[in-house]
Amino acid sequence: MPVVMSLTIKSLNGDTSFLLIFSPQVAPLSSPGLFPGSFTILVDPWIVGPSIIFNSIFSHSEQKSQPCITSLGELELEPDLILISQHKPDHCHEETLCQLSPDCGSTILGTPAAVKKIQAWNHFRPEFVHALPKYVEWDGRSIHRIMLPPPTPRGSCGEVTVSWLPARRDVTALHHAFGITYRPPCIVLSMRNPGHYLDLPMSPPASPRTPMSPMTVASSPCTIVPAPYNDREKTLSVLYSPHGVAFETIRPYATSHLVSESALPLTALLHSFDCVENPWWLGGNISTGSPGGLEIAPSLYARAWISAHDADKDNRGWAVKYTRIGQFAVDEVKRMLEKSHGNKKRNAARTKVVSLEAGQEHRIQGG
């Protein structure tokens, strides 16, 4: 029986540091990163040292549980892409990132504020560090695209896309999401001529003049209908939003890019379970937690909802003195999903809720 393509999500620190391994259909599961067409993404690495904002008097955080590695040099392979979701040190951690060689060949993508901070270190080669533009519906230039060459000349190229979806008027600069899609290179045998391959063209972008084409028509304003399967392999998709964001921010991306790429159901949602609140004069909501994820997961038919940014940390300092945390366990999130109504209830029943400790991984097969 053929092995379907897969996404392996490994937690490095039990919080927001993840290694995402996308593997094509013909890759052996035992060594997904070694096969042509595989793609690895390192997300928000924080492995060593504390996270300090301004100074230890203001905010000082340390991880209570040990990460599964002590250095990024312990990763089996150099990641193809490093994604930095914000400039705060628990996401953009200088001591950890600078464990990588200045000649590291990994592409680094991040928010403009994160990239500005990384460039100030003068550690990485400037041509490998890029700020993501804000996603704009129907503007393909707002999507960062990486071509994946096929293993053989007769194959078709694959593609990885990364999009930044920031909330409007967010004074904290915390509430946004990152959309990732992976379409593997293809080698397709011709049914009419055994031994010969078909070269499949890359999916054309959706027409900007047809926002209500058949593949984006919804039965109601709150429902997204995935595109029907066609003759190409399905696309894997990830939404990473550690602090949460309103679904209305995600909707344009889902109805245009995810639908046109045949990337729904969403393969994995990486989103916090816990709600974190500060007084309004300290930014207000820090993490939307389960209530926010309960709107996103069923709407995008998520196959897995994986906890992000919920690790128990030793937080000290003036900034965290007034912080209030509402914690939700896996079973509680499952029960909340079960209480959904209508189409959301049916979609939620398919979502697997997962919490990963450092070193644990979760594999999702798709395609």
Rank of each mutant, 00 (worst) to 15 (best):
T216P: 00
W318N: 09
G342H: 15
L239T: 00
R168V: 01
A311G: 04
K313M: 12
T16V: 12
I47C: 10
Q86F: 06
I296C: 11
P226C: 05
F54I: 15
I187M: 14
G140V: 09
P112K: 03
D231E: 12
D44A: 01
R335Q: 02
P151I: 13
T16P: 06
T161I: 10
P36L: 13
I53H: 01
V136A: 12
S207D: 15
A173C: 08
P205M: 05
I9C: 11
I53C: 01
T255N: 03
V217N: 04
L337K: 06
S56C: 10
F178H: 07
F35I: 03
I296V: 15
L97I: 05
H362Q: 06
Q119M: 08
H87N: 08
H341R: 15
R324T: 14
I250H: 04
I52D: 01
T16D: 03
I57F: 13
I296Y: 04
I21W: 00
E277C: 06
R346E: 10
A319P: 09
C157W: 06
G155C: 03
V43C: 09
W138H: 13
P184Q: 15
H196V: 12
E137L: 03
N347W: 14
I82E: 03
G289T: 01
D231W: 13
S51T: 04
N193C: 12
K313Q: 05
H144N: 00
P265I: 08
G284Y: 01
Y135V: 10
C104T: 14
R141M: 12
C92F: 03
Y197C: 14
P252C: 09
Q119A: 11
S355G: 10
A329G: 06
A297V: 03
V3N: 14
S65D: 10
L132M: 02
M147R: 09
R316G: 08
H271I: 01
Q365W: 05
T152V: 09
G293H: 00
V354P: 03
A268K: 04
L258W: 04
Y301P: 02
K134Q: 10
L100E: 00
R303Q: 15
I82T: 09
E74K: 13
S256V: 11
A329Q: 00
Y135A: 09
G158P: 08
P89A: 03
R232I: 09
P184M: 12
E74F: 07
W280N: 15
D80N: 15
L12Y: 04
L300R: 10
A206D: 05
L100G: 05
P214N: 09
S163V: 01
L34S: 14
V225Q: 11
P291L: 14
V354R: 01
H91K: 12
P150F: 00
R154Y: 08
C186E: 11
A131G: 12
G293I: 05
A206T: 02
S61H: 06
G155Q: 00
G37I: 07
S101W: 01
T288S: 15
P112S: 06
C68T: 13
P149L: 10
K344Q: 15
L75Y: 08
K345E: 11
Q25N: 11
A131Y: 02
L29W: 14
P205E: 04
Y182H: 09
S38R: 03
G14H: 04
